[in-house]
């Protein structure tokens, strides 16, 4: 069997101020996967990604990229890896194309091969007309795309993106998703990303890990995780305000405001039954939506679970 794109064993990180950011995590990402690493602020996502691309020294543990131990043959491992960090990390005074070409140079790619590739990448990422613009004059979303172009210049097999869509508008975010899906599908690039937009993770990623306070609290496929959802909560908008909370046999109902109800539907229950009861009571529902994104509900439950809160999954 082919080596996984990423394999992490017992990864520990204690920062200089004695803060233990990672408490011995294990993680495996298959070749060709589209993987999300999720977790609240300060959970240890950037620390994990930083160790993989050697921006952060690890305290203990082992990291392999396509079976190559980063401590053994770091040069070979790095050829396989492209990184888009959370914070901007290019020289603000240099021009867009120069930044991408310099990165190619650091990988030993001759200019005659780097140039057409840089042009193509900047074109694909909508930066073609910004080639000669100093990086500081780009908008936030453009800067992020510049970092993606730079990370792809040496055609890495594994692309790591730390919050690539933070501060990117909806339209652009969608085009970035499409781009990442395309290179995942057509070039077989394995993609690992972190994001706080859970609907983004849900629609893009096949597999997922949730990290909280330096520990992996969940690591499974997106489908299996969503399948764990026991209770889904819907918000119903009513045609007319209600005086009191209606009772529906077998369902938990609450009034959010006079013309909004929340309805919790457990696994195995039929929404039809709830609507039949509402209709019988003369209550007219004009629209309905999920109270939260499905992944979000699980996420909150998982993260709260560890913090002593109440969980909503089995």
């Amino acid at each position: 069997m082919a080596a996984p794109a990423l394999s992490i064993r017992g990864l520990t990180k204690v920062y200089a101020n004695h803060h233990q950011a990672l408490k011995g995590i294990d993680l495996e990402v298959a070749d060709g996967d589209f993987f999300a690493l999720l977790g609240p602020n300060g959970a240890g996502k950037s620390t994990t990604l930083g160790i993989i691309c050697s921006l952060v020294n690890k305290t203990a543990g082992k990291v392999e990229i396509f079976g190559i131990d980063i401590d053994r043959d770091f040069s070979k491992a790095k050829y396989a890896l492209g990184v888009v960090p959370q914070e901007f990390n290019f020289n603000q005074f240099e021009k867009v194309e120069d930044i991408v070409l310099a990165q190619a140079g650091y990988y030993g790619i001759p200019l005659r091969r780097a140039k057409p590739r840089a042009r193509q990448l900047l074109e694909d990422l909508g930066l073609a007309d910004k080639r000669d613009t100093p990086a500081r004059m780009l908008s936030g979303g453009m800067k992020r795309r510049l970092m993606i172009a730079r990370a792809l210049i040496h055609q890495p097999r594994l692309l790591i993106l730390d919050e690539p869509t933070a501060g990117v508008d909806i339209e652009l975010r969608r085009s970035m998703w499409e781009y990442m899906q395309r290179i995942n599908r057509e070039e077989g690039t394995t993609i690992i990303l972190t994001t706080h937009y859970l609907e983004e993770a849900e629609s893009l990623c096949r597999n997922i890990a949730i990290i909280n306070r330096g520990e992996i609290v969940e690591n499974t496929s997106m489908r299996a995780l969503l399948g764990q959802l026991d209770v889904e909560t819907f918000v119903l908008d009513l045609a007319a305000p209600l005086e009191s909370v209606p009772e529906i046999e077998g369902f938990a109902v609450a009034r959010l405001d006079p013309s909004q109800l929340s309805l919790s539907v457990s696994r195995g229950q039929r929404i039809n039954d709830a609507f039949a009861a509402l209709t019988a009571q003369g209550i007219e529902v004009v629209s309905m939506r999920n109270r939260a994104n499905r992944l979000e509900e699980l996420f909150v439950a998982l993260v709260e679970d560890k913090q002593g809160g109440k969980g909503g999954i089995r």
């Binding site: 040069s75 790095k78 290019f90 020289n91």
Partner: peptide, 18 residues
């Protein structure tokens, strides 16, 4: 130091250069 300050030193660190 400018590279450190602007974090562009990371471009060098992530690369396979010795």
């Amino acid at each position: 130091f400018g590279n450190k300050f602007q974090r562009s030193v990371e471009e060098l660190i992530v690369s396979p250069m010795q």
